[in-house]
Design a protein around this nucleic acid. Structure first.
Lengths: 200, 200
DNA sequence: GTCTATATCGGGATAGAC
DNA sequence: GTCTATCCCGATATAGAC
């Protein structure tokens, strides 16, 4: 909301907030304009259509998210250290941007073809991570598990509690602080589970 | 589509399919009517409004899903057996109704207050499961872990791969069969991970 | 109960002044 | 670049005949 940004940046920021909360179909151009402190017509002036604005957002968000979690697995640390770092970073990220993951998954489910068309040509982080894990297994540093399943386990344990936050808050009657405590505990616990599972 | 159902049943069935695929905001009354083989006005005749139709669907689906997974934990089997049965049943359920979980989580995230208002008064399956696990811990049958986190781990490992199905298909370039194979493998693997983690 | 026709409105998009 | 006014379509919902 600091108004020393360009109008375009203000629109992007506002649009991100609204799309995250309401999704593509639920979002209103009027609400985005209001939040950016400008007129509805101006949003169209900058981004032509709602779909194009959405694509711009999705593009930025997805590449940032996917890019983030590649870096960690590329380091020269031990696999155990990589996994611990990854879990901790992933959960922290999810806490500070609670809507982001829900948004990503929902839009991917809603419209996989369009989304993956847009992602075409970009480097595929999942393939990279799978290959990193495969290499570790060949190196003999861990048990010979299915690397896809291993990656999927890590992602599941980290991502699900972020996506399911509203459910957890309501179903367990825990407040915001209770949720944060739970997540803090999980950073270590999740890594422990994975490590224990892949140890020979 | 068997037309020996009542009109109301046909509408509910059609609406379920459309809401699952498109979500509340994306669904169109016209599409629901078409799929039910009737007229748009007739949908309103039976359910007054789109919101009321949606509530009817959500009500039915959520109570069925939540109800399902309580039963397993109430049996007199060993905890290990309960967990294995649960994982297997949960994943099977997710395979046969791929949209269901995404739908539930998306709508809960979109509108937690309304949803949980609607669920008020119903028995809370999460509290029940948490209490079952707490009892097991006190009985000494497993390590003293945080029961909420334990439950969350089970749910994460089972639910996430269902929700993320379109992502997995595209990101790993596996086909429908590859996905099924992966899930089959996971039924045992997920339970193994949990069992190993809670063993003293 | 089921249909056709229509009212009504919200929201994306554009025209055009400044 | 930014605004106001307006177009126009699509979608929910209702009226009313059968």
């Amino acid at each position: 909301m600091t108004s020393d940004q360009t109008t375009e940046q203000r629109i992007l920021e506002a649009a991100k907030a609204v799309f995250f909360e309401k999704g593509l179909n639920g979002a209103r151009m009027q609400e985005i304009a209001d939040k950016a402190g400008i007129n509805k017509a101006l949003v169209h002036y900058y981004f032509r259509s709602k779909d194009k604005l959405f694509s711009a957002i999705f593009e930025e968000v997805s590449s940032r998210v996917f890019g983030r979690f590649i870096a960690i697995f590329r380091s020269q640390d031990t696999l155990e250290h990589k996994i611990r770092t990854f879990c901790s970073a992933y959960i922290d990220e999810g806490i500070s941007s609670p809507y982001l993951l829900s948004f990503l998954f929902n839009e991917i489910n809603r419209n996989p073809r369009v989304i993956f068309q847009q992602l075409k040509g970009k480097t595929n982080p999942f393939m990279l991570l799978r290959d990193e894990l495969t290499a570790e297994i060949e190196k003999g540093s861990i048990r010979a598990v299915n690397p896809v399943n291993l990656l999927l386990n890590i992602l599941s344990l980290c991502a699900f509690p972020i996506i399911a936050k509203p459910l957890l808050l309501n179903a367990f009657h825990i407040g915001e602080q209770g949720y944060l405590d739970l997540m803090a505990e999980r950073k270590k616990e999740v890594a422990d589970i994975i490590i224990q599972y892949i140890n020979k």
